[in-house]
Design a protein around this nucleic acid. Structure first.
Lengths: 199, 199
DNA sequence: GTCTATAATCAGATAGAC
DNA sequence: GTCTATCTGATTATAGAC
């Protein structure tokens, strides 16, 4: 028995309201600005409720992360089912909001063991999901050099798009246009030119 | 006149002591854990002194950033003077400590205007310094495709090494070995194999 | 030029009321 | 199962003492 304190039901309505409020705050002001008081204010609830539904603030952060990560995995699965999965992933990985979250959680994970473990786990799942989708594409292209495995493509695409997104958020984009042109050339080589989305 | 409050001399000894303490704390526990009390404790000084030498905590962060950034630019200039600048930059950009700082400051910059402006400025200087050094290398290689400009090389090398460093800090390295092998091949193509450093 | 006493506010967490 | 009164301590910042 770790503690006699009781905790709210996982499906309680106010629990979700608090998660939403915390998520918004993380995005708008960063994880460091997220306190029980501010979360509660935004949710229209009393601050003590944060500690009723989440044992500690770190628990709250973990739950927000898990929720976003699961949504992200589902969204990425959709994206990878596109007829041009490389191109689709490139667009997907450039998403500003998604990358803003990743930055916040990475900063948190850097100093909190539980968050680090969780992020590592989900990073693996994201990357493997990408690699599996790319394996199909590359099988069709005998021209691909041996070194360009699905995993390598996944690493390069997400690394570049993440840094681009981050730097653009900082208001800095030197060298982006030229590099995007190179990526574009690469994408066209493996999937053909950009096709208008019919969905 | 913004405020009647006085501020400590820029070259005062305790000012540097506080900067050192803040820098250590940012690295070890993250910017969110940096308070005037904790900085002062580590420096062996009274908390109020932080506000004597730095008007606000944000000013302190800004000063820590500037100091590191200037040191970084000097270090990078040395590195780029190497006989194998591409290879040297690749090693340099993989530095864990440097990337940990960048992560913290990026998270801060995401929500603070002054920090964002400062980071943008220095990012530009780092990138241009790299691109200028690479221009010399690429001039010797008529085999380089047109798209692979010095700026593009700079973007790709730093993007990959940053993400690698970050992911490894999280304890996650899926796909790294394969991608590094590809980078290695690329480096050898432009600069020859790894040479033992004689310095 | 250097430092401190003090103000005003906010923080996470828990025991206990409904 | 849901919520609140309350404790204890930390936070930034300033006005004023040396």
């Amino acid at each position: 028995m770790a503690s006699g304190r009781r905790i709210g039901a996982p499906d309680a309505k106010n629990r979700a309201v608090l998660l939403d409020a915390a998520e918004e705050l993380i995005l708008e002001e960063g994880y460091a600005a997220v306190s029980s008081r501010r979360v509660a204010d935004r949710a229209g609830l009393k601050p003590q409720l944060v500690h009723y539904y989440f044992r500690t603030m770190d628990d709250l952060f973990l739950e927000v992360f898990r929720r976003r990560a699961e949504q992200g995995l589902a969204a990425q699965a959709q994206v990878l089912a596109s007829p041009q999965p490389l191109r689709a992933l490139w667009e997907f990985s450039t998403d500003r909001t998604g990358n803003a979250f990743t930055l916040e959680f990475a900063a948190l994970a850097n100093h909190r063991k539980a968050m680090r473990a969780e992020m590592s786990l989900y990073s693996e799942r994201f990357r493997m999901q990408q690699a599996e989708a790319f394996a199909t594409i590359l099988a069709r292209h005998a021209t691909a050099p041996d070194e360009l495995t699905p995993l390598v493509m996944s690493v390069i695409i997400t690394s570049l798009s993440r840094i681009f997104s981050l730097e653009e958020t900082l208001g800095f984009n030197t060298g982006h246009a030229e590099t995007i042109a190179l990526v574009e050339k690469f994408l066209s080589q493996y999937e053909g030119g950009p096709q208008p989305d019919k969905s």
